[in-house]
Design a binder for these strands. Structure first.
Lengths: 215, 215
DNA sequence: CACTATATTCAACAAGTGTTGAATTGGCAA
DNA sequence: TTGCCAATTCAACACTTGTTGAATATAGTG
């Protein structure tokens, strides 16, 4: 038996819920769709997690800490390895973005769904307020502090807005809407996270330097 | 009587639906919430627009063309006014972003809701496919063509990815999640579109030049 | 074996869902 | 007035929703 007393059906429920919530949003998914997809009775999700809202929270929380912690590790590591006094801007941005790329490379298809779910939460006025604060904000302020050190002369508002643009570019990438596939005629693929992140880092780094001060 | 045979109650339905859909998404809104908000019988929305899905489409289409057309106007105007052969990168980006700023400045509170709805559609894998193609894609390819002229040596994929980042930064701004308000401690405001666009243009312009080739 | 706790299913409820056909209103033309 | 058509409401339908208490299965322990 599992250590936490929850079997494999319990995780199948979360996996299916993750996929469905990412695709249709919270209200677009029914408990019966989840239980059918997990080949499980409709009452089982309630037994394990509580109400529908708790299922949603369980799905979101399952991978949130892992993602946020990896960000912290990379940020601290780059601070230690840095030869220069403050770490470079590219290092900060990479520490922020690469954990998502790494998660994708694990091969676990659940991460792909979770990223779309994360984009859904990030761009929703309601869920953003409820979920981002507890799971991500504490680590995000560490990044903003690092950015302040990298741009000591910059106005604080400029740094916040620039971070906001990075967050937006990231969110749309995570959403995997397939729009870039259509607009580019198949030249670019939403699923190609390597291509997305490799260009995103120099793109936003240049934007930061332009807005937040020279050098 | 109205020219199209639809009275003011008809528009009140669209206004309320616009606000609710922007906040809760398609499945998070019921016909009764809409009709109650519009102080109208629940059957009236069906009479005017058809099914619930048609109400959603009516809301989205109402302002889509106006927005897309203004983009085209600004782009053509900047092409004519340009002294240099190809217009500057900043002019292209401004033509893409400013129509949203202008719409905001009309004072019509409906635009604020519509922008959040637009962000919801842009970041949704499902709605993006169904709605963006018919309403925006034709004009977007014109912008990408203009960008190709501005960066004749750039690889086509780079241009598409950079446009993708702009689109993401814009989407998160339109969403008005209030997250930047919280992270900045009230220093930046989601509702302050002036602040958002004034910095977004130099930010993404610098990113384009970095990724898509010098100069 | 029996006992127990957990995991899972069964069956059903009350409330809410989108949708529709019939009935009612209101204004305008003949 | 009468007739007519669009706008609006009324009332109800069949169906789906989340949730729950009881019943059953399962597995580990003594």
């Amino acid at each position: 038996m599992n250590k936490k007393g929850k079997g494999e059906k319990s995780e199948r429920i979360l996996d299916v819920a993750e996929e469905l919530f990412a695709l249709h949003g919270y209200d677009g998914v029914t408990m019966r769709q989840i239980s059918t997809g997990a080949q499980v009775d409709v009452a089982l999700a309630n037994y394990h997690f509580g109400k529908k809202l708790d299922v949603f929270y369980a799905v979101f929380n399952r991978r949130a800490a892992l993602l946020s912690d990896t960000r912290r590790e990379l940020l601290l590591k780059s601070q230690q390895d840095a030869t220069e006094k403050p770490q470079t801007l590219e290092q900060i941005i990479a520490a922020f973005l690469l954990p998502l790329k790494f998660a994708q490379e694990t091969g676990d298809p659940g991460w792909k769904n979770y990223m779309a779910l994360l984009a859904y939460v990030m761009t929703s006025p309601i869920w953003s307020k409820k979920l981002m604060k507890d799971n991500f904000d504490k680590r995000v302020v560490e990044f903003i502090e690092a950015l302040k050190l990298a741009f000591p002369k910059a106005k604080e508002e400029d740094i916040h807005w620039c971070y906001h643009y990075v967050s937006g570019a990231l969110a749309l990438t995570l959403a995997q809407t397939g729009r870039i596939d259509r607009l580019s005629g198949g030249l670019c693929l939403s699923a190609d996270f390597d291509a997305a992140y490799d260009r995103m880092i120099p793109f936003v780094a240049a934007g930061f330097r332009e807005v937040c001060g020279g050098k």
